[in-house]
Each structure stands twice: as structure tokens, then as C-alpha cells.
Design a protein around this nucleic acid. Structure first.
Length: 474
RNA sequence: GCCCCCAUCGUCUAGUGGCCUAGGACACCACCCUUUCAAGGUGGCGGCACGGGUUCGAAUCCCGUUGGGGGUGCCA
């Protein structure tokens, strides 16, 4: 095993979005780098430079920053691009060829298939091993897999052994001379003196090949750690096509980075004690690769939301108000920005804070305050107005509001008394009033909302509701 | 086909031979609180895949079965 200084690499491939599974792996690396005082090396993984779009790399860096992994942190190094080491890739291949650890092969895909069909065995049969072919156009360089067994020492899984017999002589250099990913990957890890490779379990079957390359290149392989993948309800690996996997999307929906980080860390691992909601500092202290579970974990958005709600409620009010700001715009809400009144919002914010699991749900909670009309939901309106004596309640309330003391407890007592006159509990009585004022059956406490809306506008909305009801029943 | 990995409540996990009548969290249900909805409080439902061993004793160790997942390209 490696005795190099701790250098962990996180090597996403550029795809235009940042996968939540990748985020978790990054966090594992990051926690280790912080606790052990090592280096987190970010390497953008792709041998084809043309595919490395600058904005994609920036997207990864932004997403990493969002989950607390910052490029200006002393533990952070990079980003690097795989192609940066292209010469080293070729040099390594030449070295392996010169030493007889690799050989050239001129078989085409079709020929390999034909041979495998006639022999009844799957895949390439090492046909060119001893043909002594020279390099040439269309000829690939293959690694000569030695006999024996390759044992991978994995921090998460223990010893995993592979019979080399099942590993065919894999390609190092394509027919056009360009290096394959596996070669580039190993050479980069060597060049960067990587000590620990922490990555998703799907890479485990490729690990013996990589380890043989390290050995063949005269290097001590790194410490491996293969962490389980994240899956969906169907227990399939999370995929961009089927599942919501982009960290950017969760960010846009108003998930807090701390909640996301905390939740991600509870998949496959758990902090000590009975509570799962823990600060990053505790995670850094307690996280051990050896403790990571072996089986895939379902990414449960419901539980993420529960975590997010906890984090939202734990925010100081001022912080919550600031955090809401990006969502209280014309883009996210329904009103033109100039009608938004931040002072009014800050007065109701405390009542909203316990009611939203996500920040993007804030606009729907407060829009009635800022729109010219109550955003009436038809079904809610109809339902509320079927309350017995709904019309009378609205009429009585209008009268009472004209002279009422403008304070929520006073309003509460007034409506309570009106309801008692009809033999109704407050819960029933407030229903038609609520829908007239806020347009919805659910939302922040009614009397506080009325106080904020103001006497004239509140009365106007109650009258407007009566008219609406009248014309609907006419 | 071949190779590899995995298996505790619906889900995420605690558990490393006796502390387990298996603990917590999310979800769900009920009740309390209540100005709707939340939040909060209390309680409930619910699990060691199966079969063999080993052992005085097994969720924990071994073997097998079954079931899941991943890998298997001149993709990354």
C-alpha cells in the first residue's frame, strides 16, 4: 500500500451537469483531505480535449463551491485536465512496449468477433500476443496481462481478488495512436502522486487492470476505496435520463447546501449517535471510509426535503429572509418585482419559515400580499364558499373590519365571535375569509396576514369574493 | 455468457458472537396542541431474504440457494 502523502483525486467527466452521486464522492474525498490534512485534487476526466467545454468545467467548480468545496481552500488543487499529460501517456505506452509488457495487434473488431464465434469463447483471445507485430497504422497496443491473480485491497470492501485468466489483453493505444482512458487515467494518477482513489463502485471491475498498469509501470498502487452507487426506486443506478440527478437542479429548487451535504453523507454512512442532522465539522471528525456501507443506497428526495426543512427552520430569521430573496422575483413568483415589498415580507417571514420544506415554495406562501388581486384557486374558492353561512360570515366580517382595532388578536376575537353566532368553530368560520384574502385554503395564519394586507385592501377582497360568489351562483 | 459486488423495518441506517424482546431517522397512521396549513409533543405500525453449518450462544462467522446491482468496446 501507498505511503505517499495523502493526495485524493476527484475526477468527474465533463457532462454539463453535476451528479449527486459525484457530489457525495467529492464530499468523501473532501472530508478525508480536511481531517487528515491531505490534498483534494480536481481533475476533469476526458482524453478528448474538444469535449472539455469551459462552461462545463466551470459548472463543476460552481457546484463544488456550493457544497462547500472551494478552489481557494488550502486543501484544494486543480482543476487539471487529463489531456495535459498526453505526452506522458504515450511515453508510458512506449515504455510498456519496449519492456515487452505490451504488444501490437492488428485484429479488427469483426475479426475478433469471428474468432470468438468459432472458438466459442467471449472476446479477444490474445491472438497477437506472440506475433511480434511492429507499430503501424490501425494497429492497437495491447497490455499483456500476466498469469496469476490480482488482489485489490479496498478500504471499503476488503480484499477483492480477480483471476487474471478472465482479464483479456486490453487496449492501451488505439489504432490512431491515441491513449485509451484507462492508460491516461493511471498515468495521470501516477504523475500526480495520487495516494488514494475513492470512487464509485462501478469502477471496481476495472481496478485490477489499473492496478496491473501501476505495477507494470514500476509503481506502488494507490489505496483503493469503492463506495456504493446511488440508486432510484427501481434500485437502478441513478441516471440523467430517468432521475433527477443534477445538483444544480436541487440548488434551483431551494435546497440548502448544508442540508444537501448532510443528507448525502447519510447515504451509505451515518454519524455516531441518534441524530443524523449534524454539522460538517462533526462529519469531518467522524467520517471513515472503513465505515461506509457496502450496498447501494436509494436517493430519497422526501428525506432530503425533511432535512432541508430542518435546516430552514434552524436558520436565524435574518438569514432566512436573505436566503429567500433570490426566489422573491418575477422569475420565481407571480408579481412584477417593483410590487414586492421587502419590509412586508420580513414581517411575515417568521410565519413562513416553519411552513416551507423548500425555498422555492416561499413565493406561493406570500404572493397574495404583493399581487393586485388574491390569486384565487377555483376549487379552493368553491369549497370554502360551501361552508354554511359563508356569505353571512363575509358580510359580517366586512362590517366588523371597518372599525376593528388593527391587530391580529383583536381580529381573531372578532371572527371567533362572528362564527359563534352561526354555531361554527373558528376553523370553519375562517375558511371563506381565508380564500377571499389569500386565494387559498392553506397558508400563513390568517389574522396576521390580514393585518399586513391592510384594512382597505382586506375589505375590498372580501367584497370582491362576495361578488364572485354571487355571479357564480347566479 | 463470463467476472465482480451486495443483502437489517417501505426507505436511509445503528449493530462487528452474549448488552438485541434489534436502536434511531424519513415516510405512514393515531392522538395532543391549534387560526387553515405547517411546526412542535406523545404514541403506533414495521425488519435481520431463505436453507444448512460453526458455537453453550448468531443479525453478527462459514457454505449454499435465491434475489438485486455493477462491469464486460479501438466509450469515459
Amino acid at each position: 500500500m501507498s505511503d505517499r502523502p495523502l493526495r485524493l483525486r476527484f475526477a468527474p467527466s465533463p457532462t454539463g451537469f453535476f451528479h449527486v452521486g459525484g457530489a457525495r464522492t467529492a464530499l468523501y474525498n473532501w472530508a478525508l483531505a480536511q481531517r487528515l490534512g491531505g490534498t483534494f485534487v480536481l481533475r476533469i476526466e476526458d482524453t478528448d480535449e474538444a469535449r472539455n467545454q469551459p462552461q462545463w468545467t466551470q459548472g463543476i467548480i460552481d457546484a463544488l463551491a456550493w457544497i462547500g468545496i472551494h478552489t481557494d481552500d488550502p486543501h484544494f488543487e486543480g482543476p487539471y485536465f487529463q489531456s495535459k499529460y498526453a505526452d506522458a501517456h504515450i511515453a508510458a505506452a512506449d515504455k510498456l512496449h519496449a519492456e515487452g509488457r505490451a504488444y501490437y495487434c492488428d485484429l479488427t473488431g469483426d475479426q475478433i468477433q469471428e474468432r470468438s464465434k468459432s472458438s466459442g469463447k467471449q472476446g479477444y483471445d490474445n491472438y497477437s500476443r506472440d506475433r511480434g507485430l511492429e507499430p503501424g497504422p490501425g494497429r492497437v497496443l495491447r497490455f499483456r496481462v500476466p498469469e496469476g491473480t490480482t488482489v485489490v485491497h479496498d478500504l471499503v470492501r476488503g480484499e477483492v481478488s480477480f483471476d487474471n485468466e478472465h482479464l483479456e489483453d486490453f487496449v492501451l493505444l488505439r489504432g490512431n495512436g491515441s491513449p485509451m482512458f484507462i492508460l491516461a487515467n493511471v498515468v495521470d494518477d501516477i504523475t500526480m502522486r495520487i495516494s488514494h482513489v475513492v470512487r464509485a463502485e462501478e469502477h471496481l471491475p476495472n481496478t485490477p487492470k489499473q492496478q496491473m498498469l501501476w505495477d507494470a509501470l514500476g509503481e506502488v498502487p494507490p489505496v483503493w476505496a469503492h463506495v456504493p452507487v446511488l440508486v432510484n426506486e427501481q434500485r437502478k443506478k441513478l441516471s440523467k435520463r430517468r432521475d433527477k440527478v443534477a445538483v444544480e437542479q436541487y440548488r434551483a429548487e431551494g435546497y440548502l447546501p448544508d442540508a444537501m451535504v448532510n443528507y448525502l453523507m447519510t447515504l451509505g454512512w451515518a454519524p455516531h449517535g441518534d441524530t443524523e442532522i449534524v454539522p460538517w465539522s462533526q462529519i469531518v471528525d467522524e467520517f471513515r471510509l472503513e465505515d461506509v456501507n457496502h450496498s447501494p443506497a436509494f436517493f430519497d428526495v422526501k428525506k432530503l426535503s425533511a432535512f432541508n426543512g430542518e435546516y430552514i427552520r434552524a436558520m436565524p430569521l435574518e438569514t432566512f429572509i436573505e436566503a429567500c430573496a433570490p426566489y422573491l422575483t418575477a422569475d420565481h413568483g407571480l408579481w412584477p418585482r417593483e410590487q414586492f415589498n421587502p419590509v412586508m415580507f420580513s414581517e411575515i417571514a417568521e410565519l413562513i419559515q416553519t411552513r416551507v420544506p423548500r425555498l422555492d415554495e416561499v413565493p406561493a406562501m406570500v404572493d397574495f400580499l404583493f399581487l393586485a388581486e388574491a390569486p384565487i384557486d377555483d376549487a379552493a374558492f368553491t369549497k370554502a364558499m360551501t361552508t354554511p353561512d359563508a356569505v353571512e360570515i363575509l358580510t359580517d366580517t366586512i362590517t366588523a373590519l371597518e372599525t376593528a382595532e388593527w391587530e391580529h388578536e383583536a381580529l381573531h376575537d372578532i371572527v371567533l365571535a362572528i362564527g359563534e353566532g352561526y354555531g361554527l368553530k373558528l376553523g370553519k368560520t375562517q375558511a371563506p375569509i381565508r380564500v377571499a384574502i389569500t386565494g387559498r385554503t392553506v397558508g400563513p395564519p390568517l389574522f396576521e396576514a390580514i393585518v399586513l394586507l391592510g384594512r382597505d385592501e382586506s375589505i375590498r377582497r372580501l367584497r370582491s369574493a362576495l361578488e364572485r360568489h354571487g355571479s357564480a351562483s347566479a
